[in-house]
Simulated scan of single mutants.
Amino acid sequence: MDTALWLCCFLPILLVLYERSRQQKTFLARRIAAKRKKGANPMTDLVKNYIGRECLIYTMNSQLAGVIKEVDGSWITVDNGKDLEAVNLDYVIRIREYPRNKNGKKKAIVGD
């Protein structure tokens, strides 16, 4: 009986939250497409400063760490030690150099 009550009360709330998340992703995709039509991505010039440095790259859905090898149009190539990855700059939210402590060792990254 308690399970049925829980489903009746919280299932609609979960469905609303899921729908809202889906709508936000759709909105962001349309916004990115509109920016792409306007012209070049200003992020391209900023990323060129990080070539050859180990960075953390945050995208809409994930994050990755590695050395930025090259910037080509709206794509960057990242070497994470195992393989090369290509990342579309339209979906990059944030880039920062990998944090290090005073001895030069890498700091532990906790979910940012």
Results as ranks from 00 to 15, higher is better:
2 D>N: 08
3 T>N: 09
4 A>V: 08
5 L>T: 14
6 W>Q: 09
6 W>D: 13
7 L>M: 10
7 L>F: 03
7 L>D: 15
7 L>K: 15
8 C>L: 14
8 C>A: 15
10 F>Q: 12
11 L>H: 09
14 L>Y: 10
15 L>D: 05
16 V>W: 05
16 V>D: 02
16 V>T: 06
19 E>N: 09
19 E>Q: 11
20 R>D: 12
20 R>P: 00
23 Q>T: 07
23 Q>G: 03
24 Q>V: 11
24 Q>D: 11
24 Q>M: 12
25 K>E: 14
25 K>W: 03
25 K>V: 04
26 T>A: 15
27 F>V: 04
28 L>W: 13
29 A>M: 10
29 A>K: 14
31 R>N: 14
32 I>R: 15
32 I>W: 04
33 A>P: 02
35 K>C: 13
35 K>S: 12
35 K>H: 11
35 K>G: 01
35 K>I: 03
35 K>M: 14
36 R>I: 14
36 R>G: 02
37 K>I: 13
38 K>I: 14
38 K>E: 15
38 K>R: 15
39 G>F: 06
39 G>V: 03
40 A>V: 11
40 A>F: 04
40 A>D: 13
41 N>K: 07
41 N>G: 06
42 P>L: 07
42 P>T: 10
42 P>R: 09
44 T>D: 03
45 D>R: 11
45 D>Y: 02
48 K>V: 08
48 K>M: 08
50 Y>W: 08
52 G>P: 08
53 R>W: 03
56 L>A: 00
56 L>F: 02
57 I>Q: 00
57 I>M: 01
62 S>V: 03
63 Q>C: 06
63 Q>V: 03
64 L>P: 00
65 A>D: 02
65 A>N: 04
65 A>T: 11
66 G>Q: 03
66 G>C: 07
67 V>P: 00
67 V>Y: 04
67 V>N: 05
68 I>L: 15
68 I>Y: 03
68 I>K: 00
68 I>H: 03
69 K>L: 12
70 E>M: 09
71 V>E: 10
71 V>D: 02
72 D>A: 12
73 G>E: 12
74 S>V: 15
76 I>M: 14
76 I>T: 04
77 T>S: 09
80 N>Q: 04
81 G>N: 08
82 K>T: 11
82 K>G: 05
83 D>I: 04
83 D>V: 08
83 D>G: 01
84 L>D: 06
85 E>R: 10
87 V>P: 01
87 V>E: 01
89 L>P: 01
89 L>W: 13
90 D>P: 02
90 D>A: 07
91 Y>A: 04
92 V>P: 02
92 V>A: 02
95 I>Q: 01
97 E>L: 09
98 Y>W: 07
98 Y>N: 01
99 P>W: 04
101 N>A: 05
101 N>C: 06
102 K>N: 11
102 K>S: 15
103 N>P: 00
103 N>T: 10
103 N>R: 12
104 G>Y: 09
104 G>E: 10
105 K>M: 12
106 K>Y: 10
106 K>S: 13
107 K>Y: 01
109 I>P: 01
110 V>D: 07
110 V>M: 06
110 V>C: 03
111 G>P: 06
111 G>S: 05
111 G>I: 02
111 G>H: 02
112 D>P: 03
112 D>C: 00
